[in-house]
């Protein structure tokens, strides 16, 4: 059964129309002790069904420890949004989601897909100039709730 209504699915297709590059969602899960992993997988399936440009890959957090570390995913469910073509990663802009991307976070994930596909931040020239001056790692965590 779909998590989205027919109308929502149609809207999602519209939002994901015209993506310029392929986007891959790397989904880190736990087979045991992750209550929201099955729901997260269904959400990612809905996204992948909404656009031929979007795909997802399931990675067992326990068995794929190295990749989890590489992407800085400490727990499940965790998602890294990367640009990929034919299964080969082209660009990892460092966008992650920890927790099930439900409610408000679902739209953040849709927006992340659009951003990674286009490569354009949409920020003002002034903001971009300030951000360009960052030359060392900067880690931003945004704590949110689903509603």
């Amino acid at each position: 059964m779909s998590l989205l209504s027919v109308a929502d699915r149609e809207q999602l297709r519209t939002l994901l129309t015209g993506l310029e590059h392929d986007v891959r969602l790397l989904f880190f899960f736990r087979a045991i002790g992750c209550e929201l992993c099955p729901d997260t997988k269904r959400i990612l399936q809905e996204l992948a069904e909404a656009s031929p440009r979007v795909s997802f890959e399931e990675l067992n957090l326990v068995l794929e420890k190295d990749r989890a570390q590489q992407y800085g995913i400490p727990d499940a469910p965790g998602i890294a949004v990367v640009r990929a073509a034919n299964g080969v990663q082209e660009w990892d802009p460092g966008i992650r989601f920890l927790g099930a991307p439900a409610g408000y976070e679902f739209m953040s994930l849709v927006e992340a897909i659009q951003l990674v596909a286009s490569g354009r931040s949409g920020l003002s020239d002034e903001s971009r100039a300030l951000i360009a001056a960052v030359t060392e790692p900067l880690h931003i965590q945004v704590f949110v709730t689903p509603t």
Partner: peptide, 29 residues
């Protein structure tokens, strides 16, 4: 999350993580 992820798009040194607070009580603490 929107602005944080936009900043990550702009600069390879920047990472942006959305954390669903209710699911990670350890991080919340």
């Amino acid at each position: 999350m929107s602005l944080a992820q936009r900043m990550a798009i702009e600069n390879p040194h920047i990472t942006a993580v959305a954390v669903e607070a209710t699911e990670f009580p350890d991080l919340v603490r």
